[in-house]
Simulated scan of single mutants.
Amino acid sequence: MKQEFVRAVPVLEQLEQGGYLAYFVGGSVRDSIMGKEIHDVDIATSATPLEVKEIFGHTIDVGIEHGTVLVFHEGVPYEVTTFRTESTYKDFRRPDQVEFVTSLREDLKRRDFTMNAIAMDKDGCLYDPFCGREDIENQIIRTVGSPDERFSEDALRMVRAVRFISQLGFEVEENTYRALSEKANLLSHIAQERKTAEFQKLLSGKKPKEALRVAASTQILNYYPELDKFTERISHFLSLEVSECQTFEEWLSVIALTSSMNESMFKEWKLPVAVIKRIKALLLGYERRKAEFFTRYQLYELGIEAAHSIERVWAAYSGQPAEHDRIDDLYAKMPIQKETPLSFSGNDLIKWSGKKGGPWIKETMKDIIQGMLDGEIVNEKEFVKRWLIQGNNQLKNN
């Protein structure tokens, strides 16, 4: 048993000492079976939320109406959720009401996929009524029970299924695949923020191209703003060597280039402003890189990491080999780099020139930096001052 479970065993034991059933459940059990690193350890119990709160001194109500209480043991938080069944779902996402039960099987029965419907006791013994371990061994994504019912209850499960293709490298079982196509239209009821979050996880997985192919063939992508265009060009995208991409922003930039998407799409995806800014910078950088290799001044403005990010997008979409070594060599030979403190400021330029502030400051600083990069100016305050006074810049003409 992994140490993460061992550290949480006292939580199970305290619940059992109170006369209740308690098991580890969910993704941590799945990942443990697969030999993967596990993160959050979740616990299911027959104790009601109020009974859980009576047993443990330090708790937080994180979703008590749905049976979940956050329990702290030795400073580590654990989500402890009461066994439950769910009624009909509203908005194809949230159940109208939940009913607490004492049966572990009934609790596992409501879960999305068989691989996530496995419980483990404190001794490491598995309770697997829906053959989830077998599906894990066969690398199959299969719903618990009817896929039509599971996806009608919570349409976001369809995007989760596709995301698991990327993260785990599994394939979707035939009936589950069919239901993805037939129920995809229900995704129109799901908030874009939730769909975007799943899409981001999909792109960070180990097989994003395979996941996107299934998402396109089942029409799931059509329920993301402007990705209907991407669906039409999915074969072109699948032919690209997109393994170069390392971040969500890089992936989305290549997708945007493939689909000729406009910038409004990023806002419709409810992306954070900072993420949109990075994507726009990558797309602008790509256009410049397409025209010519980085100049010294461009590398100075961008910095080494941003330049490599643009290079990955350019290489992925253009099909040309990335020239990372060339970037590193050019950057290393530059007299000043993005991280280099400048010996002067805009206030110095105002003082030396006797002029008022204005756009000329930015242009003059650019000229000085370019001169430094060309080896004509030394990054020393007195040298820059003499250079300016001698009239080798725009001050003389403004």
Rank of each mutant, 00 (worst) to 15 (best):
72 F>Y: 15
239 S>V: 04
151 F>Y: 08
359 P>T: 12
201 K>T: 04
391 G>L: 02
393 N>R: 09
114 T>D: 08
184 A>S: 02
152 S>L: 10
135 D>N: 02
13 E>A: 11
292 E>V: 07
149 E>L: 10
47 A>Q: 07
27 G>C: 04
327 I>S: 04
305 E>C: 11
59 T>N: 08
245 C>D: 07
106 E>V: 13
386 R>S: 15
391 G>H: 02
302 L>T: 02
249 E>R: 01
339 E>V: 11
221 L>Q: 00
40 D>L: 05
284 L>E: 14
54 E>Y: 13
193 E>N: 05
366 K>A: 12
193 E>H: 04
75 G>H: 01
1 M>D: 06
36 K>P: 13
71 V>D: 06
144 V>P: 02
292 E>N: 13
101 V>F: 10
116 N>A: 07
377 I>K: 02
11 V>W: 04
223 Y>E: 02
257 L>P: 01
7 R>V: 13
310 I>Q: 12
187 L>R: 02
329 D>T: 12
372 M>F: 00
190 I>H: 00
194 R>W: 10
327 I>Y: 02
139 Q>F: 07
67 G>V: 02
66 H>R: 15
312 R>A: 09
15 L>V: 02
324 H>W: 13
292 E>F: 11
75 G>R: 05
236 H>R: 10
28 S>Y: 00
287 E>C: 08
2 K>G: 05
259 S>F: 01
102 T>C: 14
338 K>H: 14
138 N>F: 09
56 F>I: 01
271 L>I: 00
162 V>M: 00
335 P>Q: 05
78 Y>L: 11
363 E>P: 07
386 R>C: 14
204 S>L: 14
213 R>N: 14
298 Q>C: 03
331 Y>A: 05
60 I>Q: 12
362 K>C: 09
345 S>R: 09
228 D>T: 11
200 Q>W: 01
278 R>A: 08
398 N>D: 13
148 D>M: 14
383 F>I: 15
351 K>V: 13
135 D>W: 01
92 F>G: 12
202 L>P: 00
179 A>M: 09
12 L>E: 08
284 L>A: 08
52 V>A: 08
271 L>F: 01
300 Y>S: 05
244 E>Y: 15
60 I>A: 12
253 S>V: 06
213 R>H: 11
56 F>H: 03
231 T>S: 15
369 I>R: 11
95 P>K: 01
276 I>G: 09
51 E>V: 12
79 E>S: 10
23 Y>H: 13
279 I>T: 02
206 K>L: 11
159 V>G: 00
196 T>N: 00
260 S>D: 13
286 Y>S: 04
155 A>C: 03
46 S>K: 03
244 E>P: 06
268 E>G: 09
8 A>L: 03
188 S>F: 10
231 T>A: 15
34 M>S: 10
327 I>W: 07
209 K>I: 05
373 L>K: 01
94 R>W: 11
129 P>K: 08
396 K>F: 09
320 Q>C: 09
334 M>T: 02
105 R>M: 15
177 Y>S: 14
120 M>C: 04
235 S>F: 09
17 Q>P: 10
91 D>K: 15
3 Q>G: 14
206 K>D: 10
1 M>N: 03
314 W>S: 08
132 G>N: 07
255 I>M: 01
21 L>P: 08
31 D>T: 06
268 E>Q: 12
239 S>W: 06
